[in-house]
Nucleic acid binder design. Sequence first.
DNA 1: CGAATGATACCCT
DNA 2: GGGTATCATTCGG
Length: 216
Amino acid sequence: MSTASADVRGALADAPSAPLSREFFARPTEIVARELLGAWLLRTTDDGLCGGRIVEAEAYGGPEDLASHARAGRTRRTTPMFGPVGHAYVYLIYGMHECLNVVAFRGREAGAVLIRAIEPLLGVDQIRRRRARPNDPDWRLCSGPARVSQGLAIDRSLDGHDLTAGEGLWLAATTPAPPDHEVAVGTRVGVEYAGDWAAQHWRYWLAGHPSVSRRR
DNA sequence: CGAATGATACCCT
DNA sequence: GGGTATCATTCGG
């Protein structure tokens, strides 16, 4: 048990447990995306501990999935997607924003789950200081994949990071997990170019939760 | 609504 | 090798 995990248990009555195991991520990405709803995303930096609960996630597949970065096969950028499950895949988008994925199993080839939004619950003050819009209400601070990264100080230095080690950046389950009737499912955001794969219902979110990202 | 901002992938010589 | 269109987004006007 890491010191950081012990800190989390002390910080909250609704205590997250140990880091999610390798086995948790060794399942199809759409299962992992669904199961990650409600789980804690936790981060330690020089500013201390911060994090929140995942309210929105999307599953991406391997080369067969035309919406996935892995569609071009294994490249320098997508190497983590083809590596061991439970590691981070962090990429730069639009030249300025970073997005966090969790590598999961998909057809023996590649796969990842994009963390699209969390509800900030721990270290909200430090999360707020890192954001471009520090006057936003708590629930909006991490309402979008790049906002999650900005708020939790996640960048490409964490690309390939082992999320099961429980240090620096990791995930922890909650009990109980959200029941199916609180979970909504739909198409992935921003992948209209992907033909039939754009219709795949691989986006999961907590129905009605204010921290879920919205289209403008 | 459109700018910001740079890595990447893909097509061409 | 080099040029360039595109991008799993966000913010201010």
